[in-house]
Write a protein that binds this DNA or RNA. Structure first.
Length: 963
RNA sequence: GCUCGGGUGGUGGAACUGGUAGACACGCAGGACUUAAAAUCCUGUAUCCUUUAAAGAUGUGCGGGUUCAAGUCCCGCCCCGAGUACCA
C-alpha cells in the first residue's frame, strides 16, 4: 500500500476480510446488553438499488456499529420480501418462473449491499418465498384460523374457549357483548343444546364467523388488470398502488383477517411506542375511532327499523331525512312499487361506478327517494328515507340520519333535493342556514324537547341515556378500519394452508406444513376464471380434497419477519423462546413512511396476536421507529423541436430551455438521461461528447441532436438561431421522484466505482437531516471525498511514509479530539448524522492545522469515524499495527476536562445589537466585566455620554447594554 | 377540507434550553505549485450604500406581539411538500 488513498483496494480488501472472518456474526450473549436494529424488508425489484435506497441502510448501519462500539450485542440482519406482484407480472410477460427472476434480483441486491460495507449478519438472512420460511407464515395463519377474539378479555384466544362456551351456555345473539363485542356476524341466538345438535357444517359455519382468519362474502377491491383482490391500503386514489390499474367493487367470497378486533389496542398501543408522530397520526386516522350512538328509526308500516350511526346524537331533533347506502340490505324491503324502478336503476348505476369515478365525482350529489318513511324516535314525526351514494355501505350501519343544519354533507344533499333544514344548535350568532351548515360543536340545544338549553357535551350524554332507557339506541364506538382481505388470486405468494371438505374450509395439520407452492405451466388465471393455482396438476390435500386456490398477500411474510431473524434456522418453531426472550423486540426500526398504514399496521396486529397466544413477550414489534426521507431524482429537461433534416430523417433538435422565455414559444420538454449530462459553471449541459455516449447507452435518443446556430436557418424556427451555441445546449433541472421513466436514476455502483463506498456513505449522511426528503445531486460529493483524502494524509509525511508519533498529545489536540467524541456521540443518539459529518471535517481541519501526528489522538479519531467510514478506518487502524478489527474496539471515553475554557470573547451588544467582542476570563465577575466594557472605545462611542439604563450580563454568553 | 412536515446566502444545510445568524461543504472569483493538466494548498464570498477600507444599514416566508435580547416563544396570515378524504 502506498501513500495514496485507494478506495478500490481498501474496500475490496476489508469486505473480504469481514466476510471471511464473519466479523458481524452475532449470537445470543447473556453477558452483554442486546440491541436490535432493523431495516424495513426490501422487495428485490428488477431495477436494483438506486442511490435513494441505501439512505436508511447507511443510517442504521452507522447506528449498529456505534452501538457495538458502546458494548452492545447488536442484532442487525437483512433479508428479502421475495413474494409479490411485480415478479409475477414479469413472469406472465416473459414466461420465466418468478422464483428464477426473484433469485436473480436478490443476488443483484446482495451484491450492491455488500459493496456498501454494511455490517449485516448474513447468516440470519431470511426470504419469504423460501418454504422453510413460509412454512411458519402458514403456521401463523393456522393459529389465526384457530383463534377468536374474546371481547371480555380483549385478547385473542384459542377457538376452543369459544366452542366450550357454546357447548355450555350457547349464544345470545350478536347484541351479546360478552360474546361478540358487536363485531361479528348477525347470527340468531342459540342454546347450548341447540349447538350440540347442529351438524358439523353448521357448527363450522358459525365458528367461521368468529375466527380471526375467516372466509366470507364481502365487497372487495377487485383489480381486473392484475386479476386479483387488493386490500384497502393497496388502493390509492381508486387505482391499484402497483401499476395504477382501475379498481372496482365486487362481491366475492374472500379470506380476511379480523384486524378490526384489535382496533382499540392498535390505537392505544400507539401511546406506548416512540414512533414518528406522522406515522402514528396516519395510523390513528386509518383506524378512525369515533364515539357516538347508534339509533333505531322505526320504519312506517313495517316491522323492522333502520339503525343509523351518528357522532352527533345531540342533533337528533334536527333530523329531516334518513339516507341509506345503495348496498343497504333493507333497501329492497323499503322501496314501494311506485319508486321501485327509479331506485333500482339508481342502485345499479351506483354499484357499477368504479371507486375512481365515485371519488372523482364527490361533488355530484345524487340520490333517490325510496317512498318509505321512518318515524322519529322521540317526536314520532314522519321522515323520508332516501338512498344516496354519499352514504358508504362499509362504514357504520350503512345508514345516516340527515341533519342538514349541522352537517355539511347532509346540508348539500338537503339543498339539492329541497329537504327541510332544521337548526337545533344555537351558538348565539345569526347563522345563515341557506348558505351552509353549522358544524362546530359549540352552542346550546334549541327546538329539541328535553335537550333544550343544554350544551353539546351534556346533551349527548343525556340523549344517549334517554335512548338507552327507551331502548331505541345506545352509545357506540365505531371504527373506520376494515378487516384485511387476505386472499390474492395470484400465484407468487404463500399458499393458504386450507382445504375444502363439503364446501367447508379446514386448515391442514401443522405437521403437514409447509404446503408447497406447486409448479404450474403458466401464471394466468384458468379458463374458468379460477386463480392460477387452479392449473396445478394433481394438487389435492390427502389426494382427495381441493386446496384453497388463492395465495397470501405480500404483507403476510413481512408481518412477522423481525421474529424470524432472531432464530432463522429453527425447524421446530417459528422462533424459539430463548431467542425471543433474549432479543425481545426491535429497538430501532428504520424505513420509509409509505408503509404507515399497510405493513406497519399488520406488523403490529400480528405481534399483538402472537403475544396474546403467549408466544412472544411483547405486543409491540418496535420500540422506536424512524422514517428516512426520500431521495428524489433530478430530472434533466431539454426542449426539443422536431424537424426533418437534409437527408429526410426526422430529427429532434434540442434547444436551450430559456428559449421558451426568450421567444415565448411553447415547445415540448423531454427527459434526458442524467448520466450523460455535464455539470459545468453551475449549469447542466449536453455536449457533442456526451451525446455520443448517450446514443450508445440509450438507442431511443439516437435522433436527438444539438441545435446549433445554422440548424434553423430558413425554417419557421429561424428566429431561434441567435440563441444557440455550437456543440452544446443548456438543460433545465427539476426535482422529481427517482424513476427509470424519467431517466434520472443514479446507481450507487457508479458512485462507489468512482468515489468508493465510504464516500457514498458519508455523502448520503451529509446531504441533510435523515428524515427529510431531498434531491440527489452529486455536486458536493467531491468535498466529502476531499475530506477522506485529508484524513488519509494526516497519517503520512510528505514522502508518503507513515508518520505517527506515540507521545503525549498536546492540549490543543486533546481538545479537538474530545470535542469531536462528544458531539458525534450526541449526534448519533439524536440520529443527526449530517451534523457529525461536519464535525469530522472540522476535527480533521483542526488536526491538519495542528500538524497532528499523534498516535493516541489519531487512533481514537479512527474509532469515532469507523461507524461512518468503516473501510478507510479499518485500513488506517491496521497501519497503526492493531491486530484486531476496529469493529472490536470500544468507543473512546469522553473527558470533559480537556474542553475547559479559561477565557471567553464576550459579544457586547448595545440595545440588543451586536457591536463588538471583548475577551474576559471566565472567572471574571459581572462587576469586573461591566466596568471594563463601559470603558471600551466602541462602547463609549455608542454610549455617546449617555448613562446606560441597564446592563445585562450572562456568564459565558453575552453582555448587553440598554440605553 | 383535515392532519403532519417545512420555508435561513447562488446551492445542500448549521445554530444547545431565547444569547455573536449563515458552522461545515458545494459553487464561484482570485492566487500559489506545475511546461501543462490532475491533485493539493492559500485568500475572498448574505445583501445594500461606499472607489476601497473602516464604519454603517438591512437581513431567517409576511404582519403584529412578548423580551434587555427572537431563526428560536405567542397571535394572525401566505406559500411549498407529504399523507388522507363523502367515515356521519
Amino acid at each position: 500500500m502506498n501513500n495514496e488513498y485507494n478506495h478500490k483496494l481498501i474496500e475490496e480488501k476489508w469486505q473480504q476480510y469481514w466476510a471471511k472472518h464473519k466479523i458481524y456474526k452475532v449470537t445470543e450473549d447473556p453477558d452483554k446488553p442486546k440491541y436490535y436494529v432493523l431495516d424495513m424488508f426490501p422487495y428485490p425489484s428488477g431495477a436494483g438499488l438506486h442511490v435513494g435506497h441505501p439512505l436508511g441502510y447507511i443510517a442504521s448501519d452507522i447506528y449498529s456499529r456505534y452501538k457495538r462500539l458502546m458494548g452492545f450485542n447488536v442484532l442487525h440482519p437483512m433479508g428479502f420480501d421475495a413474494f409479490g406482484l411485480p415478479a409475477e407480472q414479469y413472469a406472465i410477460q416473459t414466461g420465466q418462473h418468478p422464483a428464477v427472476t426473484t433469485e436473480q434480483n436478490i443476488n443483484r441486491y446482495r451484491e450492491q449491499l455488500d459493496k456498501m460495507g454494511f455490517s449485516y449478519d448474513w447468516d440470519r438472512e431470511v426470504r419469504t418465498s423460501d418454504p422453510a420460511y413460509y412454512k411458519w407464515t402458514q403456521w401463523i395463519f393456522i393459529q389465526l384460523f384457530n383463534a377468536w377474539f374474546n371481547p371480555v378479555t380483549e385478547k385473542a384466544e384459542p377457538i376452543d374457549t369459544l366452542i366450550k362456551t357454546f357447548e355450555t351456555i350457547g349464544f345470545n345473539g350478536s347484541d351479546d357483548k360478552i360474546l361478540t363485542g358487536g363485531m361479528e356476524f348477525n347470527y340468531p341466538p342459540f342454546t347450548a343444546e341447540q349447538w350440540q345438535k347442529f351438524i358439523e357444517p353448521t357448527q363450522q359455519k358459525i365458528l367461521l364467523g368468529f375466527r380471526l382468519a375467516y372466509l366470507s362474502e364481502a365487497y372487495v377491491n377487485w383489480c381486473a388488470a392484475l386479476g386479483t383482490v387488493l386490500s384497502n391500503d393497496e388502493v390509492k386514489d381508486g387505482v391499484s398502488e402497483r401499476g395504477g390499474y382501475p379498481v372496482e367493487r365486487k362481491l366475492m367470497n374472500q379470506w380476511s383477517l379480523r384486524i378490526t378486533a384489535f382496533a382499540n389496542r392498535l390505537l392505544s398501543g400507539l401511546n406506548t411506542i416512540d414512533w414518528s408522530e406522522s406515522i402514528k397520526e396516519s395510523q390513528r386516522n386509518w383506524i378512525g375511532k369515533s364515539q357516538g350512538a347508534s339509533v333505531c328509526f322505526k320504519v312506517q308500516d313495517q316491522l323492522f327499523s333502520i339503525e343509523v350511526f351518528t357522532t352527533r346524537p345531540d342533533t337528533i331533533f334536527g333530523v329531516s331525512f334518513l339516507a341509506i347506502a345503495p348496498e343497504h340490505e333493507m333497501l329492497e324491503q323499503l322501496v314501494d312499487s311506485e319508486h321501485q324502478q327509479d331506485v333500482m336503476e339508481y342502485v345499479d348505476a351506483a354499484k357499477n361506478r368504479s371507486e375512481r369515478e365515485r371519488m372523482a365525482d364527490v361533488k355530484r350529489i345524487t340520490g333517490e327517494f325510496t317512498g318509505a318513511y321512518a318515524l322519529h324516535p322521540f317526536t314520532g314525526k314522519e321522515i323520508e328515507i332516501w338512498v344516496a351514494d354519499y352514504v358508504l355501505g362499509g362504514y357504520g350501519t350503512g345508514a345516516v340520519m340527515g341533519v342538514p343544519a349541522h352537517d355539511s354533507r347532509d346540508h348539500s344533499f338537503a339543498l339539492h333535493f329541497s329537504l327541510p333544514v332544521l337548526p337545533v344548535i344555537d351558538n348565539g350568532s345569526n347563522h345563515d342556514y341557506t348558505q351552509s351548515s353549522y358544524d362546530a360543536k359549540e352552542g346550546n340545544c334549541i327546538h329539541s324537547g328535553f335537550l333544550n338549553g343544554l350544551g353539546i357535551k351534556k346533551a349527548i350524554k343525556k340523549v344517549i341515556a334517554e335512548m338507552e332507557l327507551r331502548k331505541i339506541g345506545k352509545g357506540k364506538i365505531n371504527f373506520r378500519l376494515r378487516d384485511a382481505i387476505f386472499g390474492r388470486q395470484r400465484y407468487w405468494g404463500e399458499p393458504i394452508p386450507v382445504y375444502y371438505k363439503d364446501n367447508i374450509p379446514y386448515v391442514v395439520n401443522e405437521n403437514e406444513l409447509p404446503v408447497i407452492l406447486p409448479v404450474i405451466d403458466t401464471f394466468l388465471p384458468t379458463e374458468s376464471g379460477e386463480p392460477p393455482l387452479g392449473r396445478a396438476q394433481n394438487w389435492k390435500y390427502q389426494e382427495k380434497y381441493d386446496y384453497e386456490l388463492s395465495t397470501m398477500p405480500g404483507w403476510a411474510g413481512s408481518s412477522w419477519y423481525f421474529l424470524r431473524y432472531m432464530d432463522p434456522g429453527n425447524k421446530e418453531t417459528f422462533v424459539s423462546k430463548e431467542a425471543v426472550n433474549y432479543w425481545q423486540q426491535v429497538d430501532l426500526y428504520l424505513g420509509g413512511s409509505e408503509h404507515a398504514t399497510g405493513h406497519l399496521l399488520y406488523l403490529r396486529f400480528w405481534t399483538k396476536f402472537l403475544y396474546d397466544l403467549g408466544l412472544i413477550p411483547h405486543e409491540e414489534p418496535a420500540k422506536k421507529l424512524i422514517n428516512q426521507g426520500m431521495i428524489q431524482g433530478i430530472s434533466m429537461i431539454v426542449r426539443v423541436i422536431p424537424l426533418t433534416d437534409i437527408s429526410g430523417e426526422n430529427v429532434f433538435y434540442m434547444i436551450p430551455s430559456d428559449s421558451v422565455d426568450r421567444y415565448d414559444a411553447v415547445m415540448e420538454g423531454i427527459h434526458y438521461p442524467i448520466n450523460y449530462v455535464e455539470f459545468k459553471e453551475g449549469k447542466h449541459w449536453i455536449t457533442e461528447k456526451t451525446i455520443e455516449k448517450t446514443n450508445a447507452a440509450y438507442p431511443g435518443f439516437a435522433n436527438y441532436k444539438i441545435a446549433d446556430p445554422t440548424t434553423f436557418v430558413n425554417t419557421k424556427f429561424d428566429y431561434l438561431k441567435d440563441g444557440l451555441q455550437r456543440n452544446k445546449v443548456e438543460v433545465e433541472a427539476t426535482v422529481e421522484k427517482m424513476s427509470k421513466r424519467w431517466y434520472n436514476v443514479v446507481n450507487p455502483d457508479e458512485i462507489i466505482e468512482q468515489y468508493g463506498a465510504d464516500t457514498l456513505r458519508l455523502y448520503e449522511m451529509f446531504l441533510g437531516p435523515l428524515e427529510q426528503s431531498k434531491p440527489w445531486n452529486t455536486q458536493g460529493i467531491e468535498g466529502v471525498q476531499r475530506f477522506l483524502k485529508k484524513l488519509w494524509r494526516l497519517f503520512f509525511d510528505s514522502n508518503g511514509n507513515l508518520h505517527i508519533k506515540a507521545v503525549e498529545p498536546t492540549n490543543a489536540e486533546l481538545k479537538t479530539l474530545h470535542k469531536t467524541i462528544k458531539k458525534v456521540a450526541e449526534d448519533i443518539e439524536n440520529f443527526s448524522f449530517n451534523t457529525s459529518v461536519s464535525t469530522f471535517m472540522i476535527c480533521v481541519n483542526e488536526l491538519t492545522e495542528l500538524k497532528c501526528n499523534n498516535y493516541t489522538i489519531l487512533k481514537e479519531l479512527l474509532i469515532v469515524l469507523s461507524p461512518y467510514v468503516p473501510h478507510i478506518t479499518e485500513e488506517l487502524w491496521q497501519l497503526l499495527e492493531e491486530k484486531e478489527s476496529i469493529t472490536k474496539s470500544g468507543y473512546p471515553q469522553f473527558n470533559a476536562a480537556y474542553l475547559i475554557e479559561v477565557s471567553f470573547s464576550y459579544p457586547v451588544s448595545i440595545n440588543g445589537k451586536h457591536r463588538t467582542n471583548i475577551e474576559f476570563s471566565l472567572s471574571a465577575t459581572e462587576e469586573e466585566v461591566v466596568k471594563k466594557v463601559m470603558s471600551d472605545e466602541v462602547v463609549q462611542k455608542w454610549l455617546d455620554g449617555v448613562e446606560p439604563k441597564k446592563t445585562i450580563f450572562v456568564k459565558g454568553k453575552i453582555v448587553n447594554i440598554v440605553i
